[in-house]
Amino acid sequence: MSHTPTVTVRYTQAISQAAEKLGFALPDRLKTAFAEQDRVELELQGEIWETFCQQADDPLIGIQFGLTLQVGHLDTAGMVLMSCDTVTEALDSLMDYYPIVGEGGTFEYSVHNDICEIRYEPQYSTRQPERVEAALASLLQLSRWSTGEQLQAQHMTFTHPALDEPQRYKALLGLPVTFASQHNSLCIPASALKMPLIYANPALCQHLRTLADQLLAQLGSQSLSANVSHLLRQHPNWGKEKVADHLNMSGRHLIRKLSDEGTTFKLLRQALLQNMAEQALGEGLKLVDVADQLGFSDESAFAKAFKRWTGMTPAQFRET
Rank of each mutant, 00 (worst) to 15 (best):
T4N: 15
P5Y: 10
P5Q: 09
T6S: 15
S16C: 10
S16A: 15
E20P: 01
L22H: 13
A25V: 10
P27L: 01
R29G: 03
L30Y: 07
T32L: 14
A33C: 05
F34H: 15
A35Y: 09
E36I: 00
E36Y: 06
Q37R: 14
I48N: 03
T51F: 04
G62L: 04
Q64S: 09
G66S: 07
L67T: 05
T68W: 00
T68I: 03
T68A: 06
T76C: 11
A77E: 09
D85F: 00
V87N: 04
V101N: 05
G105L: 05
F107G: 04
Y109C: 05
V111G: 04
C116R: 04
P122D: 11
Q123I: 12
Y124L: 14
P129Y: 07
P129S: 06
E130M: 02
A137G: 07
E149V: 00
Q150T: 08
A153E: 03
M156I: 14
T157F: 06
T157N: 09
A162H: 02
P166V: 08
Q167G: 11
L172P: 06
G174N: 11
P176S: 13
T178E: 15
H183T: 15
H183F: 15
L186P: 09
A192H: 07
K194Y: 03
C205T: 05
H207W: 01
L208V: 03
G220W: 08
S223E: 11
N227D: 11
V228C: 14
S229V: 09
H230Y: 13
L232R: 06
Q234E: 12
P236W: 02
K240T: 09
E241H: 10
K242C: 02
A244Y: 00
A244K: 01
H253S: 13
H253L: 05
H253T: 13
H253K: 12
L254Y: 10
I255Q: 08
D260T: 09
G262T: 10
R269A: 08
A271Y: 00
Q274M: 13
A277V: 02
G295V: 03
F296H: 04
A301Y: 02
F302A: 01
W309Y: 06
M312D: 10
P314T: 05
A315E: 15
Q316L: 14
Q316D: 15
